[in-house]
């Protein structure tokens, strides 16, 4: 069914901290590793060891340079995967009903046995979250590791998306963003979590935490870190004095 549910019981999603992400791409690797051998068709690569490698990924990390009006430019690493939108345009355009949004937790999934591989859902997504697998001819996207988060065969600490479990800097958080008291919702409220491309009207569930201002924090300590003696010492000091006298 490609009509979107009026509401979902939960709004499971990710909160991604752009302040702490170090751009290591570990989430990309763990995502590919888990999802190539679990839900649905494997994530194929084309010409992986050749001159023009290309492949299917559900999560990719961009890097952006932000130059403020004053002060130094800052590099922001920017992981991007499906945002499990409330008004997901990728779902409503699907002609076959392969794309759907789950009522129980809001996860957007593709039923691969119904997918005809027309690619229209990938066109409808503003975030580039859907990629057609070139070997299988079906659309692949982030499942929020639906086969991990409810999986009672896994130890409890592993019942979260692979990208969240693996992130070494704690930049990724998983939870119910529909519950205002959940840890992720409190984090979003505290840090001013934001939507990507709000003008597209997709109402994304995933939120991004903006980078904290850096230079302001350094300014407090900077006066204490001034060097005590600025003049040269030793041989250079003698040379400096000698040259001054000439």
């Amino acid at each position: 069914m490609t009509l979107l549910p009026e509401t979902t019981e939960k709004k499971l999603g990710l909160v991604i901290d752009l302040d702490t992400c170090v751009g290591c791409h570990a989430c990309v690797v763990s995502c590919k590793g888990w999802n190539t051998e679990n839900y649905g068709a494997p994530l194929s690569d084309q010409d992986p060891y050749g001159g023009a490698p290309s492949g299917t990924f559900l999560n990719r990390v961009h890097s952006f340079e932000v130059t403020p009006k004053e002060g130094a430019a800052q590099l922001v690493h920017f992981p991007k995967s499906c945002l499990h939108c409330e008004d997901a345009p990728c779902v409503t355009v699907c002609p076959t009903g392969a794309s759907y949004k789950r009522v129980e937790d809001g996860i957007v999934l593709v039923n691969e046995s119904d997918c005809i591989g027309c690619g229209l859902c990938a066109w409808a997504c503003p975030y580039g979250a859907r990629e057609m697998d070139q070997a299988e001819g079906v659309m692949k996207k982030c499942t929020l590791c639906v086969d991990r988060i409810y999986n009672e065969n896994l130890p409890e600490e592993d019942r979260q998306p692979a990208c969240v479990r693996t992130c070494p800097s704690g930049a990724r958080h998983f939870g119910d963003l529909g519950d205002p008291e959940s840890e992720v919702s409190l984090l979003v409220a505290e840090r001013g979590g934001m939507d990507l491309m709000p003008e597209q009207g997709t109402k994304p569930v995933n939120k991004y935490l903006p980078p904290r201002p850096r230079d302001a924090a350094i300014d407090i300590l900077a006066p204490l870190l001034e060097p005590v003696a600025t003049g040269p010492k030793g041989f250079l000091g003698w040379l400096d004095k000698a040259l001054e006298k000439i």
Partner: peptide
């Protein structure tokens, strides 16, 4: 690019490094 990254209020935004060295489905298609 400012609304896409949500970083517009911090300054001007420039794509510094793509997520991959080659191309991908998104770039070929869109």
């Amino acid at each position: 690019i400012e609304s896409a990254t949500g970083l517009g209020d911090k300054g001007s935004v420039r794509a510094f490094e793509p997520p991959h060295t080659g191309t991908n489905y998104l770039m070929r298609e869109m």
